[in-house]
Amino acid sequence: MFEEFTQQGEKTRAAFNGSSQPGDTVTGTITGSREVPATEFGTGKPVISKFTGKQLQKTVITIQTTLRDDADDDGQRSVWIKQWGDQARAFGAAVRDAGFTPGEGDVLTVTLKGTKTTQSGFREKVWEYRLTRGQHPVAGATAFTQPAQPTQTAQTTQTDSQAKADQLRALGVPEAEIQRLTGGQQADPYGPADF
């Protein structure tokens, strides 16, 4: 059985599931992304930051792959990335290594490297991400946001830029790189919470 993500009628198979093994790799072209609230596996309870008391978030990136498991499989897969901890740092490293902020049309490769035991004694999967510049078929497509909307004021542009900067911070991208990519947005003094 496949893990699937359903939101507003959309159904996308997960790139990795319970039977995935270390060394498994999935590559595809990014077709979209969204943020979703983080919940505990099995219980569905919100994952709350012990530092801020707010619910943590995950980024869900949809990629178009060449995988086809059955006649109904369109090849789209979802990749879930926590916006805190080692997973966020690994994705942030991939963004730094690539030298660009990924968006629709770019290529994402995800590899399950193995597992490790956390300080709390839990087994946690270890991920590796690689980004490659791709084709950008949608003029003005933005990175990891909804399709770009025309902005009419400088205030709206600043808000969009701040939102992008905040998202990059949550993924562990260094402040100097965030300022380069967003035109100089300064860090929130309280910063993104690390769980």
Rank of each mutant, 00 (worst) to 15 (best):
G42T: 12
L56S: 10
I48S: 05
E35H: 06
Q146H: 03
F5P: 03
T29P: 05
R96N: 02
A193K: 09
P189K: 12
A141G: 04
I81P: 00
T142W: 05
V47A: 02
F41Y: 11
A187S: 09
G114F: 07
R180M: 09
S120V: 04
G172W: 12
W84P: 00
T157G: 02
T157C: 08
T151L: 14
T39Q: 09
I178G: 01
R13P: 01
K116W: 03
P46I: 08
P37H: 03
K45S: 10
A154I: 07
H136Q: 14
R96C: 13
E104H: 08
D72W: 08
V138R: 07
Q83G: 12
P192F: 06
L112T: 07
A98S: 14
G105L: 14
Q155G: 08
Q57W: 12
G191W: 01
P174W: 00
R130W: 04
R96D: 11
D106K: 04
L168D: 09
A93F: 02
I63Q: 00
L131T: 03
A38V: 02
K54H: 05
T145V: 01
L171A: 06
Q146F: 03
T31P: 01
D166S: 12
Q155W: 03
T29V: 13
D69C: 01
T66D: 15
T151Y: 08
H136N: 06
K116H: 15
G53C: 07
G9K: 08
G172P: 10
G105M: 10
L171P: 01
F41M: 13
G105R: 06
T59W: 00
E128Y: 02
F195R: 08
T39Y: 06
A154E: 14
Q76T: 15
A176K: 13
V36S: 11
